[in-house]
Simulated assay, not measured.
Amino acid sequence: MTLPSWPTDLIEPVGDNWKLVRGDARRRGQGDQGPPRMRRGISKAVDQVQMSFVVTHNERARFERFYVEDTAEGALPFLMPDWSRNGDYLTMADGTFLTDASGNYLTIAATWLCLFGEQLPSYSAIGAHWQLSFSVTVLP
């Protein structure tokens, strides 16, 4: 089975409403006195990412098709770019850009395996556009 990928014809999320919350893999133990004891609780934790897009009517329709058909209304996992890193240039410690043998800059290609999170897609009208908001769970 091939995993569906985020539609490349949709724009990146709006920076103001993009928020990543790291999952907690720790186990906390509280004794009768003193500070709490922390230890690793589980081997992998899931991260939650909230995001928002400003889309046209056509982009909204494209997203709806992806959500309803490709992910079975949010029930199936999918691949999505990690917009916090994807496309950034790689640099050395002194700030010099890394290049290949032809002199082209090397960029990061970061992709997440996701499920739609607890906040399912919602829309708000903004003039002739729509603000699309939802959360995703990034799987380990």
Rank of each mutant, 00 (worst) to 15 (best):
R27M: 14
P4T: 05
S43A: 09
M1Q: 11
A75W: 04
V138N: 00
G23C: 01
T91Q: 13
Y89M: 12
S84C: 05
S102P: 06
M80R: 00
M80G: 00
N58M: 13
G87P: 12
P140H: 11
L106N: 04
V46P: 03
K44S: 06
V14M: 14
Y123N: 03
T56A: 02
G103A: 04
V21F: 00
D16Q: 12
Q119P: 05
V46S: 08
T96I: 08
F53A: 01
S52P: 02
Q30V: 13
L3G: 05
F66V: 04
I42F: 09
A101C: 01
H57G: 10
S5T: 12
D32A: 08
E12T: 13
M51C: 07
G74M: 01
A45N: 05
L90K: 06
F78H: 02
L3T: 11
L79V: 08
Y105M: 12
Y89V: 14
R40G: 10
S52E: 07
F116A: 00
F134V: 04
D70T: 00
A110H: 11
S124N: 05
Y89N: 11
V14C: 14
Y67D: 00
W130N: 04
F116L: 02
D16E: 14
S133H: 03
D32G: 13
P7Y: 14
N58W: 14
D70H: 02
V55D: 06
G29Y: 15
P4Y: 03
H129R: 15
R37P: 05
A93N: 12
V21M: 03
I108L: 12
P4M: 03
C114A: 01
D9G: 10
F63M: 00
R60L: 08
S122P: 11
L120R: 06
W112H: 08
A109N: 15
Q50N: 14
T107W: 01
A125H: 12
Q48H: 07
T91I: 10
W83H: 02
G127S: 04
M38K: 02
V138A: 04
L106G: 03
